[in-house]
Design a protein around this nucleic acid. Structure first.
Lengths: 111, 111
DNA sequence: GTCGTATATCGTATATCGACGATAGTCAAT
DNA sequence: ATTGACTATCGTCGATATACGATATACGAC
């Protein structure tokens, strides 16, 4: 129930609870933060940023991980939208989604 | 460092493998990213940023989570260094660690 | 001292992550 | 159609995250 907080609103007016947009915003940033929450994924993102694109096989060679594990991380990065991949013959060429990258930087900068 | 990579060098010189600093750097960012990898923690950080400081109890009131759960998230945020708390009588006053915050923004911006 | 408040920690249950090998699917070349 | 190279998905396992209630701890008020 209402905590009958008739007390003098203290110093910092417990704020106006959490606004809905705030919740959605938090989930957005959490999703992007989670994409970078593993060293392997950070390394993949950094690798892709250092080139304009990169074959999946090259990524696997750079990492001390099994191919299937790298594929998993790539899937996560694709789900968060940070990375996109297009099929190029029998290979897949991955690259950074600049828009998502910009959004991430924006969200962090606006923190 | 001398990779003596007598291999076929392919199209794009599989780069010079991963340099050690790069690995440490990735882990740094991953740790900070992980701090923000949960909506509850994002909200806590945002709440703290909107004030100069905040009592633990106020944070709990803002969140739809049990007190013990919020305490756990605060512990994680303290471990990553993003947040610091000082005891103020029977309460604890949390605030953002500006230095860690700056480092996070720097790491993201430099991506 | 006791009582009440505020916070942290413990114990535990469930869910998800992160890793791997094995397998399935796709495409180019033959 | 068969082969070979590349990538994605499946199944599984141990480790960890997340959530909660219960309990422990620290402090101020009385």
């Amino acid at each position: 129930m209402v905590k009958a907080k008739a007390k003098s609103q203290k110093c910092c007016t417990a704020s106006e609870k959490l606004s809905l947009p705030d919740v959605a915003w938090a989930e957005d940033l959490a999703r992007l933060g989670w994409a970078l929450a593993h060293p392997a994924r950070v390394r993949i993102v950094r690798l892709l940023l250092s080139r304009t694109s990169c074959m999946c096989g090259e990524i696997v060679e750079e990492m001390p991980l099994a191919q299937s594990t790298v594929s998993q991380h790539l899937k996560i990065l694709k789900e968060t939208g940070l990375v996109q991949g297009e099929i190029d013959g029998p290979r897949v060429c991955y690259c950074i989604n600049e828009a998502a990258m910009a959004k991430l930087k924006q969200l962090i900068a606006d923190l």
